[in-house]
């Protein structure tokens, strides 16, 4: 059984369609990467899985439940968390409060989960009373992921998690993504750094002009000449 299934989805943001009959699947515990040129609809495809896109045709299933027409706040309750590319923290609130907001819909004791996040990202633990707006880009990205993990999702959606980060932070971020994945959480991400992303993923999708182009394991895509020419910088 797959965790997330996108079947023949066509849609966009109300105007012209951006996606044209796209398929995608994420299995439990998998890391799946979407790559493609600018304007291919990568982020749109991911947002389609989170109720942020008007879907005209096709369906989105999460663990066999149809979530095509659900709103983001309903999908969150199903066990999917989403980390936007930009503006992904609450800047005037502390690290601790950011994480609390991530767990807003939980009524149980969130302290064990907070401890887990601080273990995963020790840096956040050191700065729990710091205001998010005053942190560096890399730290904010950690906080954004931490916030999304507060609900203990089964699937984590990451929109370009390494955009704008220094190479050092980039490597760290990929490592973190792998350690999150090792706890059994499925991951779907859009990445510009295709080479590194394909190296850590189970499977990858290449999208062009809002359509599926190639779908294969990460290793095969890395070895694929066409893909290498197009996106991996030779």
């Amino acid at each position: 059984m797959s965790l997330l299934t996108i079947e023949g989805v066509t849609g966009g943001y109300g105007g012209a369609d951006i996606l044209h009959g796209v398929d995608l699947r994420v299995g439990p515990g998998e890391i799946v990467v979407i790559i493609g040129p600018n304007g291919a609809g990568k982020s749109t495809l991911m947002k389609a899985a989170f109720g942020l896109v008007t879907i005209r045709e096709g369906a989105v299933l999460f663990e066999r439940r149809d979530i095509t027409r659900l709103r983001p706040d309903q999908i969150v309750r199903e066990g999917v968390s989403y980390v936007p590319q930009e503006r992904n923290v609450f800047p005037s609130m502390t690290v601790h409060e950011n994480l609390e907001m991530g767990a807003f819909i939980r009524d149980d004791d969130i302290r064990p989960q907070l401890d887990k996040i601080y273990d995963l990202f020790p840096r956040l633990g050191e700065r729990r009373d710091q205001v998010a707006g005053s942190m560096s880009g890399g730290e904010r990205q950690m906080l954004a992921m931490g916030r999304a993990l507060m609900l203990e999702p089964k699937l984590l959606l990451l929109d370009e998690p390494t955009a704008g980060l220094s190479p050092l932070f980039m490597d760290q971020t990929f490592e973190r993504i792998q350690s999150i994945n090792r706890t059994g959480i499925g991951i779907l991400m859009v990445e510009q750094n295709a080479k590194q992303a394909l190296a850590i993923c189970d499977r990858g999708y290449v999208l062009t002009m809002g359509r599926n182009r190639v779908e294969d394991t990460g290793a095969s895509l890395l070895a694929n000449k066409d893909v290498a020419e197009m996106f991996l910088g030779g």
Partner: peptide, 18 residues
Amino acid sequence: KAMRAMSDNMDLALVSGI
């Protein structure tokens, strides 16, 4: 706190399920 969060970043508040 949710009020402050929404004032800070409405989109993120919504995707957090607030």
